[in-house]
Amino acid sequence: MWIYEKTLQYPVKIRKPDPAMAKLIITQLGGPDGQLGASMRYLNQRFSMPYREVVGMLTDIGTEELAHMEMIGAIVTQLTRNLSVEEIKKSGFDAYFTDHTAGVYPVSAAGVPFDVKYIGVKGDAIADLNEDLAADAAHVQEQPSQGHAVRPSGCFP
C-alpha cells in the first residue's frame, strides 16, 4: 500500500503563471510518455515478475513516478492560477480551459486524454523489461524536446 508524504520530490515554486507552457507541460502527466503511464506500467508489471529484485525495483520506481506525477500537477496548477480571459485566449489554453478550467486533467500536449493503451503488460519478464527500456528512452527524449518548445522563462528556483 502507499503512504503519502506531504512534500514534493523536488520543490516547485513558479512565480509567473503561463498557460501556454501549461499546455505543453501537461503531456508529462497524461501523455503517452508521461508519469501517469509510467507509474501504471511499473506498478502493474511487478505482479508477474519472477525475481524479487525486479519486483522491488518496479515497486520503487512506480512509486517514484507517482511522486513525479504530483510534481507535474503542481507545475500545471501554478502555471494556470489567476488567469484573465485575455490570457486564456491568447495562450491557446482556451480549449482545455473550456472543459477543465484550472483543474488538472491528464491529457497530452495535443489534448488527447490519457489512455492505458500507452502501457504494455505482457506478463513476460523480458518483454516487460524491454518495454520499460523503451518507455524510459522515450521519456528522456521528451524532456529536451519540450525544453526546445518552451521558452526559458525562469520559472523554477
Binding site: 519472477p50 525475481y51 524479487r52 529484485e53 506478463g123 519478464a125
Partner: peptide, 16 residues
C-alpha cells in the same frame, strides 16, 4: 535468491 514462483510457473521454467 528470492523466488516469487506462483502457480503459473511457466516463465521461470521457460527461462530455466
Amino acid at each position: 535468491m528470492m523466488d516469487t514462483r506462483n502457480s503459473w510457473a511457466a516463465p521461470r521454467e521457460l527461462y530455466e
